[in-house]
Nucleic acid binder design. Structure first.
Lengths: 224, 224
DNA sequence: CTAATGCTATTTGTATACAATAAGCTGTCA
DNA sequence: TGACAGCTTATTGTATACAAATAGCATTAG
């Protein structure tokens, strides 16, 4: 995508992800155009894309709204993600190169560093985690799979609490990556897939717990 | 989508599906606009959509080309489809209503009629087959799953041969539907998923065989 | 003859004006 | 009061003009 379109897409997406655009609220093309400093044309492109990715929904008369996800929606997305990412792991196990394996090891080492007590470096963790998964997806060598995973990987769910990043979860995540590495090393696709399923499921429950806490906070803050 | 956009999308899509737009060939927005009788704006919308659905690919300088699928691509799509549609069947098994079950039975009965010797009514078969699967997808009640399946269900592969519609395959397809119906009746999600996997895999091999035959015909027709 | 450079034509990207459609409001009538 | 009709406003859809980028070709230097 070219400059204005790209800019609009990223801008709108990050506004949704950050909660700046509230779930359920209507969004008007012209307002977004002003916010992004472009005309409606690239904004419309972006909206179409975000609609396909289910960040935005449209009612029957073509008005756009920021998607408002229920816990069920979240679980559905995570289940789909577990299924797809397991498949990626399975395919990757038989295709991954020595170089890619080395890269995985590198990122997982960085991950471990990021956990380092007493203060975990969450942004660093997230970055290397993202790259770790990206390498597996690349090794899986299925463009379609990659496309689909793109659609379920980022969740437009804003959490006030940071529960999902607690130390225990970070540690487990890292250790699951370790196990994945062994499975890849043994070229055991079934094993890799199984580990990946657990990995994503665990992530879901961490998310879900934070989501529940968050929802309660939101509910009880009607008084504020 | 509104009128012009809708029209352009359907028109372009059917031109790809029918082979009117050759795989690998470049497509220009203005040319399509003329063909569809609309301006470039709705054409561009359609191209974006078709690109997301992988009917169209773009090179690094934003030129669009009709996707040219290899046998590997085809298998990848079918595997993804098997996975997703099995999941749909599994979910449907525990959610399907009596009415939906009755509808499934109806469409499967029509399917049987369409096979009727000596001349199978292929369009009728395809129509009821489509509806059969649509009902299962609806019963699965996952919008995301439905979206994703939409992306792998129709294959932009044009076959000169009609091998994939041979009588034996139609019969097996119908009988697999029968088995699905029993699995649904017993609310056995695992069974339904397993049957569905086989159902899609069989369809793939029918397709693949036709594709191979077709490719050979294409190759040997360089002389013509 | 090859490769690099600059020009031209082609194609896509963006902005904007206008058309079509839907929503919201207001006033009237039952 | 309530609901319906018609008007007004808000919002999205489409066409088109123009800007930017790219590719293809020709010309020339090495």
């Amino acid at each position: 995508m070219s400059r204005a379109s790209e800019r609009a897409y990223n801008h709108i997406r990050s506004m949704i992800l950050s909660g700046e655009l509230q779930p359920g609220s209507q969004i008007r093309e012209e307002a977004l155009a002003e916010l992004c400093g472009v005309s409606r044309t690239p904004v419309r492109d972006s909206l179409r894309r975000l609609e396909a990715e289910m960040f935005i929904r449209r009612n029957d008369s073509q008005r756009s709204f920021v998607a408002d996800w229920s816990l069920d929606d979240l679980e559905d997305a995570f289940q789909l993600r577990a299924m797809l990412e397991s498949r990626a792991a399975k395919r990757a196990a038989s295709r991954i190169t020595r170089e890619q394996l080395a890269l995985l090891r590198f990122h997982n080492a960085q991950l471990k560093q990021a956990i380092g007590l007493p203060n975990p470096d969450v942004p660093k963790f997230l970055d290397h985690n993202r790259q770790f998964h990206a390498i597996i997806l690349a090794a899986a060598a299925s463009e379609r799979l990659a496309n689909m995973l793109g659609q379920v990987t980022e969740q437009p769910v804003i959490l006030r609490t940071a529960r999902q990043y607690d130390l225990e979860n970070l540690r487990r995540s890292h250790s699951e990556h370790d196990e994945l590495l062994i499975a890849f090393d043994k070229r055991d696709g079934e094993w890799a897939a199984a580990v990946m399923t657990g990995h994503i499921r665990r992530a879901f429950h961490a998310y879900a717990e934070a989501h529940s806490t968050d929802t309660e906070i939101r509910k009880s803050s009607w008084a504020a």
